[in-house]
């Protein structure tokens, strides 16, 4: 028991110690003048500026704005992606024809089309939401189709032997069986959505956390910029961990 604990605790402590040590070394190099302080701020200054950006830059309101855009765009990926995924599973020829195209869309640099969306929807949160929803749609569709296709044949046969209707088959067998993989799609798609929302906010200098980084960088507020980037990274990690926990909670127990 103790050795199992130490075999996990020692590597974790090593990881944390490495990061703390790296920041301490950076602080020392900066103070010694080996690294230019006009390029990299002191880690202690970055740490101190967290309080300042929370108080002066309205970080909580900006986080709320970004969260709102993520949830609305994410909601639309589910609303549009799940029915399309189900349709692709239902009509096999359509799936054979379009699945590769949808996978190609997932890998395409869609976010580069932001000027088009600026023309269509103006410089507004709608642009951020529509662009991000489109970015997150492909993984949602693909994972939904995969989830339905992974339904065990024995369950389908039980449904057929009970002479279930299409609706009963879908709601009683297919959908519950596909739910874990659909949620994997939600996790992937919402991760894409978060990346896109923050990215577009940064690029068009609008809205929440992405705009905050842009503004601080334009003011050449180095500690503030680094603190804001760290904050956004922390928010992304928390968001990702929460989605991952929800997903594992939905997975069938083995």
């Amino acid at each position: 028991m103790a050795s199992a604990f130490s075999s996990r605790a020692i590597p974790v402590a090593t990881g944390v110690a490495t990061i703390v040590g790296a920041f301490a070394a950076l602080e020392g190099l900066l103070r010694a003048g080996v690294i230019n302080r006009f390029v990299v701020p002191l880690p202690s200054e970055v740490l101190a500026s967290f309080g300042r950006i929370v108080a002066e830059e309205d970080v909580l309101e900006r986080t709320r704005e970004t969260a709102y855009e993520v949830f609305v765009a994410g909601f639309f990926t589910i609303l549009i992606g799940v029915p399309i995924g189900a349709a692709l599973y239902r009509w096999r020829p359509l799936r054979d024809a379009l699945e590769d195209w949808i996978a190609a869309v997932a890998a395409a640099p869609l976010v580069l089309a932001f000027p088009l969306f600026l023309v269509m929807f103006g410089r507004s949160p709608t642009t951020v939401i529509v662009m991000s929803a489109i970015t997150g749609l492909a993984p949602m569709i693909l994972k939904t189709t995969e989830g339905f296709a992974a339904t065990r044949p024995v369950l389908m046969n039980v449904g057929k032997s009970l002479k279930m209707t299409d609706g009963q088959m879908f709601w009683k067998i297919l959908f519950p069986s596909a739910l874990p993989l659909i949620f994997t799609g939600v996790r992937l798609s919402w991760t894409f959505v978060l990346i896109s929302v923050v990215g577009v906010e940064f690029l068009i200098n609008l809205g929440g956390l992405g705009q905050l980084i842009n503004e601080l960088a334009e003011r050449y507020d180095l500690p503030g910029t680094y603190a804001a980037i760290t904050f956004v990274v922390a928010v992304s990690v928390v968001f990702f961990v929460a989605l991952e926990r929800l997903e594992s909670w939905l997975q069938p127990r083995r």
């Binding site: 996990r8 020692i10 590597p11 974790v12 090593t14 990881g15 490495t18 990061i19 390029v39 990299v40 991760t191 978060l194 990346i195 896109s196 923050v198 990215g199 940064f202 690029l203 992405g210 980084i213 842009n214 601080l216 960088a217 180095l222 910029t225 680094y226 980037i229 956004v232 990274v233 992304s236 990690v237 990702f240 961990v241």
Partner: peptide, 29 residues
Amino acid sequence: KFLSRAYEPYVYYLAPTPRIIFFPVMIMW
């Protein structure tokens, strides 16, 4: 295994962050 347990969680959790926000830092460097 030791290195994996010590450092892989950082790589894993930093992977899905929006990288474009590091652009101001890259410009400075």
